[in-house]
Design a protein around this nucleic acid. Structure first.
Length: 279
DNA sequence: GCGACAG
DNA sequence: ATCTTGTCGC
């Protein structure tokens, strides 16, 4: 019924998106273009950015897009931009950028106009770069559209081009000793698509780092490690924290309506000996 | 039928 | 993506 009627336009949309990815992919630069990227201490690097999109619970449309800029190497937040947006495009695996990237580009443009001196020299993106079905993930997409160097940081392995979360893969993870240790993710074609990185000493799950735009994989991995206070690179982590908090504050102002009926959250048990049962 | 499916 | 505060352990 409706499913079938919507099926055709959806396929047409995907083929358009696929063509757009192929077109923009030709513009990706997967090497270092800046002097600081090759410097052992990244001297010359002063501002790193992070972007994220957080969602309102039980709402596939309302979200908060955020861009933060941190000082480097201090990693202190010097700029924050959170904005409620309405996402129209659906989430399709392999096409994440078409859902989220327009709002991230907007945020970058606003900063470029408002305070060019604060524009980050590199952007960390929540998601993959060239480690992608067609070699053009959201980090590449945002990089090409903004012209800024971008690094893709995914929290789980996208199993593409022969890469799989196999027993062998898990064993390689187990062998990562200290924060900064990594191993290459080799696609079936023999190309290194990204690196699994232990982002800090006591992290079990690695990060999957790949080139977004205007940076080598080596520099991307090294800088990612250099921006990790915790498992998630600080720019992305701050963007995530602040976008979620923005949503929380927004809902508080409008007043969360109490449901007319439905399950009620039962209070957690009190620490010790508190009488809980109603009389 | 089973597993994968960035966010 | 979202569900989640306090809690147990080093």
């Amino acid at each position: 019924m409706a499913r079938k009627a919507a099926g055709r336009p959806e396929q047409e949309m995907l083929s358009l998106w696929k063509r757009e990815q192929a077109r923009l992919k030709a513009l990706v630069v997967d090497r270092d273009t800046e002097a600081w990227q090759r410097d052992p201490a990244f001297s010359g690097l002063q501002r790193v950015g992070g972007v994220d999109v957080s969602f309102v619970k039980d709402d596939s449309v309302s979200a908060c897009a955020s861009l933060v800029v941190l000082s480097y190497p201090e990693l202190e937040v010097v700029y924050e931009d959170c904005r409620m947006v309405s996402l129209t495009a659906p989430y399709m695996s392999g096409y994440l950028a078409f859902r989220e990237v327009p709002f991230l580009v907007d945020a970058v443009r606003r900063l470029q106009e408002k305070d060019p001196g604060l524009v980050p020299q590199v952007l960390f993106v929540d998601g993959n770069g060239v480690l992608h079905h067609r070699g053009f993930g959201v980090a590449c997409h945002l990089g090409v559209l903004t012209g800024l160097p971008c690094i893709g940081v995914a929290k789980k392995l996208l199993q593409v081009d022969g890469l799989e979360n196999s027993a062998v893969h898990k064993e390689k993870i187990r062998r990562l000793r200290a924060g900064g240790d990594s191993f290459p993710l080799m696609g079936g074609s023999g190309t290194v698509l990204g690196m699994a990185l232990k982002s800090h000493d006591h992290s079990t799950k690695p990060l999957y780092v790949s080139v977004g735009h205007r940076m080598s994989l080596e520099a991307a991995v090294r800088l990612t490690h250099g921006c990790c206070k915790f498992r998630i690179p600080e720019p992305v982590r701050q963007a995530d924290i602040r976008s979620r908090d923005y949503i929380r504050r927004t809902l508080a102002v409008q007043g969360a309506p109490a449901p007319l009926s439905g399950k009620v959250q039962r209070p957690k048990a009190c620490p010790k000996g508190a009488a809980e049962e109603p009389a």
